[in-house]
Design a protein around this nucleic acid. Structure first.
Lengths: 272, 272
DNA sequence: GCCCCTCGATTTACGTTGTAAACGAGACGC
DNA sequence: GCGTCTCGTTTACAACGTAAATCGAGGGGC
């Protein structure tokens, strides 16, 4: 095949993104979950889900089949069915497990003990860390149908919804504005992170081509899109971290206004 | 008259959602594409893609198989391979076709002839109309890996990227701020619309249960989440249209500031 | 008339998938 | 010893995506 030299070399990147997997301490770590042959004996649901996450991270979502996951665990496919009712449920479990990593992140708190802004900031970065740690899993987190209409991705767990609402209401938000904030926050996270991981994915995935002549590539005719061509350097810049920060900042400011005005954020017009 | 108004702060009529499929004229219509048995003879790529979209809209993405799509067109599965190289490419084509509906929407313009805010408003509502018209397809639009890293969902077409950048630069944005706006706009649309369609989906999909005893439902124990329980009526409210409008409004205001200050939006305060 | 060629759809076939069902093989209380 | 329970394997099957061979119907060229 191609040069397997792919040491996940820590590129100098830019000014150290604190949410990047290598850029931090131990948070957002995967469940150990046993390497292929290791730690045989003693399968259980958590180990199956952990192996599934590991597998998806390594081989991509499409590569995950019951048979291959079984092999990855050193076991026949049917053995998995003792711990997982089926493939769909396995994927649900994967999503849940990944989100549950939040719970073990020491930088994310369940309560707003240092103010709601600190709470939201930490939570956002925690979710971002997870998204970046599992870029192949995140689209699943984003698109799997939620259990209830008001359990929204990417924060798809009752516990976090409860925590979120309590944090804001406890900080002076009205019930209405807390719910509105929950919605705005969810869509902010979802949009930013899905975009970020999908763009990360495209940087790597498209058939590695050690093309002898990178110029005059076979890509579509760009002559009709002069602006795109001209701005390509700008467009290709990866400013995800800064954009995330800025949008989060902006959202917090919006919420601050809502909180100060002590009413629901919607309907900015009909001032009392 | 239905919709976008350049002056931010003027919400459109809020009674009826103008982007809902029934709520408007002919925009965002599907390619006719022949009902199951009808219009035999004369298959071609467009008809295949149109049928695929129709099929997904009706039966859901998971139900789409080459064999079933063939049957839907009154033809054997293998016949499709004359017009489509394979299933993956079919899905790519579906995404492209759906986005191309924008191009036929009379309310969406390629150029910012009535100002950039009007342009962005119309474009946003056009995309939203498409998302609502094809809720089962939109997750595909959101998650399929883009061709290039800077062709972002949901506006995944070079033509629209070009149009977007031209519109903003032609309205006085710097190149940097136009690109930044493109990113912010993409993530806004993606987050909001993906959330909206996924929530729409959950309202219908979960196995219709003519449950004899709707009380004491089998759903998980909610007693640990009192706030969620208490706010459930609020959480279940569907305010998507208003939220979309408000977030769009807010984005436009942010961009207006950027434009007036004549510099790039990021790094407003370099202090941490 | 006939022959042959191309086009569009079908038939057949194969490997892979998810999963139902039957089947061992230890480990344990008695 | 014996059931019985737990956990993994074997076997089996329908449905999937798709490669390859096949077939029928026009449509020139002569």
């Amino acid at each position: 095949m191609t040069g397997p030299d792919t040491t996940p070399g820590t590129l100098p990147d830019e000014s150290a993104d604190p949410d990047t997997p290598e850029g931090r301490g131990g948070a957002a770590a995967v469940i150990p979950a046993a390497s292929p042959g290791t730690a045989r004996g003693g399968l259980d649901r958590r180990r199956v889900l952990g192996a599934a996450i590991e597998f998806i991270d390594q081989q991509g979502l499409d590569a995950l089949t019951m048979r291959r996951l079984g092999a990855h665990l050193g076991v026949e496919a049917m053995a998995l069915y003792r711990y997982v009712p089926g493939r769909e449920n396995l994927l649900d479990g994967v999503v849940e497990s990944v989100i549950d990593e939040l719970y073990g992140d020491p930088d994310v708190h369940l309560a707003a003990s240092h103010g709601w802004q600190d709470y939201l900031q930490r939570l956002a970065h925690g979710v971002r860390r997870i998204a970046l740690a599992h870029p192949e899993v995140f689209p699943l987190v984003a698109t799997r149908p939620p259990a209830a209409p008001w359990v929204r991705p990417p924060l798809r767990s009752l516990r976090w919804v409860e925590s979120f609402l309590d944090a804001l209401i406890g900080s002076g938000f009205t019930q209405e504005s807390a719910v509105a904030a929950y919605r705005a926050y969810s869509s902010f996270l979802l949009g930013h992170l899905l975009l970020e991981v999908s763009q990360k994915g495209v940087k790597i995935s498209p058939e590695d081509q050690p093309d002898g002549v990178p110029e005059a590539a076979a890509s579509t005719d760009l002559s009709e899109y002069p602006t795109v061509v001209r701005l390509e350097p700008l467009l290709s810049l990866d400013e995800s971290a800064a954009e995330f920060e800025e949008a989060l900042e902006n959202l917090l400011e919006r919420l601050e206004v809502v909180l100060r005005e002590g009413r629901t954020p919607r309907r900015g017009d009909p001032r009392d």
